[in-house]
Amino acid sequence: MVDSKQQWKAWLYLSPAIILLLVFTVWPIFNTLRMAFLNGYGNMAAMGGATFDLGIQNFLKVIEYDKFIDCLKTTAILCVATVPISTTLALLIAVALNSIKPLQKTLQTIFFLPYVTNSIAIGMVFATMFNIVGYNPVERAADTWGIINNVIQFFGGEAISWINQGSTYTANIAVMIVYIVWNALPFKILILLGGLQSINKQYYDAAKVDGTPKARVLTRITIPLLSPMLAYVIITGFIGGFKEYSSIVGIFGEKMGPPDDAGRLNTMVGFVYDALEKDRQGLASAGALILFVIILIVTLFNNKVIKKHVHY
């Protein structure tokens, strides 16, 4: 135990961290709770001297708001589609990287580069590849198809309006999935590669002696032994997926949708930001709390499912 005379020293050393946590984590959480349960709370109004009743009106408003369901739907679709794809791809790439001896370090660096690149910048590149409206007049859009449409046309297909005027929701989501998967890969590859390199080589020798085909080595040995890392990657993937926002801004801009249907791809976090901008902090807080509860439930569910499949 620390001598009681020394205790103030301990507190002193801890104080920077504690103060920062109090100001930027504990107080905002508390404040969010407070605002969420004050009916119709808004900062401006509060400063103007208005008072608010305690209640759950904010929550009811969030749920009643028809766009909210759309936000939830888009978020859920993006999550459910991207996490399995990016995890599978990351696994395959990590396994391939791990089995390559020459240039391994170089390839690792290349695969990790997107991680240190700004996601808005990446979004703009993707937007150009899928061709974004606004960079060119709409009437000349046909001349400026991005590289994806060029490839499609090269193989005799018909150009698709991915994100431009008249694009479908499905096409929009497809672009988002490609982008989010690509963006999520480096971190997952890094984690899985680390996991692979810590697996005892002797299991592979044993598998060789047992005459195990390559595919079975992957499914029966590598994946089970990697399951703790996979679980981590999947759970954090879902959590990140439910907070998806900047990726959509990266591709569609702040309008969160194609030019003729702004807000079509809005997500939960996008909804919260919108409410904040309109000085409806009560509504935003309620939305954030609902998002928190959803993430909590999904994570608990994930944990339960994953526990059955994670070894040791």
């Binding site: 002797q202 044993a206 029966r220 032994l225 399951s227």
Partner: peptide, 9 residues
């Protein structure tokens, strides 16, 4: 193997 290398899972 010297340390068996049984598949732990």
């Amino acid at each position: 193997f010297q340390n068996y290398a049984l598949y732990p899972h």
